[in-house]
């Protein structure tokens, strides 16, 4: 039920995350979380993407640990001068459910897409062209700069460099960063020259996208319908 069309996916992702952010009760938030989990399982992302969730869940765990002690209410557990409240716990659970729902929705809808392909979809959605161009070019060259950084690090390690806390280490890292900047600048200059040689005059090509199919629209309607239902349930 996830639309194949990237424009609809992007719009659906924004609407679903916005809807999740507006939930105010634990019940509907838990229902949304369950649905988001099903959606993520259906999208079948690879293991690396699930692992990326840990960054979000670390933040959520921190919330669950601290928020109960920060919100006043009926005491649940006392640790010396600190007491955890029931209200705090339920607030933390609500937040955790909402944050996780949003992360799962993004994982399901956008996690499996090659990021650079989103450029054409963003352009088709009438985002300002310079922003889209910046996005696309950043993605295109981030990988190359990352590779360069990795090769430089390996060359340093091959000459027995180990990071310590001393002047030599800081100076070496300074050189590494400086070298990356110089190379990136050089590359930017060459890319600009290549564009000029092919007659660049401000028109950047973005592939024309085929119109979404009926199947895409059905998936989109289903997703946004579920989000609306969750919101309605929350408000009743």
């Amino acid at each position: 039920m996830i639309p194949a069309d990237l424009r609809l996916r992007l719009v659906a992702a924004v609407l679903l995350v916005l809807a999740a952010s507006q939930l105010a009760h634990l019940g509907p938030a838990m229902a949304a979380l369950a649905l988001a989990l099903l959606l993520a399982l259906a999208a079948r992302p690879d293991r690396a993407l699930w692992r990326r969730l840990r960054h979000v869940e670390g933040f959520v765990a921190l919330l669950l640990l601290t928020l109960p002690f920060a919100v006043p209410g009926a005491p649940l557990l006392t640790l010396g001068p600190l007491s955890a409240s029931l209200e705090g716990l339920s607030r933390a659970a609500l937040l955790a459910a909402k944050v996780t729902t949003a992360a799962l929705v993004l994982l399901a809808l956008l996690g499996t897409v090659e990021p650079i392909r989103l450029g054409a979809a963003l352009h088709a959605l009438r985002l300002p062209e310079p922003l889209v161009r910046l996005f696309v070019l950043t993605l295109r060259y981030l990988g190359l700069i990352g590779d360069e950084a990795r090769r430089l690090r390996e060359a340093m390690r091959a000459r027995a460099f180990r990071a310590r806390t001393d002047r030599h280490t800081w100076r070496s890292f300074g050189n590494l960063i400086g070298m990356l900047l110089v190379r990136a600048l050089d590359r930017a200059r060459r890319v600009e020259e290549a564009m000029r040689l092919r007659g660049f005059s401000g028109r950047f090509p973005h592939a024309a996208l085929a119109a979404p199919t009926a199947r895409d629209w059905t998936g989109f309607a289903l997703l946004t319908g579920l989000a609306a239902a969750a919101l309605l349930l929350d408000r009743l």
Binding site: V136, R140, V191, E193, A194, R198, F200, P205, A207
Partner: peptide
């Protein structure tokens, strides 16, 4: 160019090949 990566700045192959004619 010597380094192909300097010349291929568009996301997909077709977009890149279409860049010149568009200009």
């Amino acid at each position: 160019f010597q380094d192909s990566d300097d010349q291929l700045f568009c996301p997909t192959v077709l977009e890149d090949v279409a860049f010149g004619p568009l200009n």
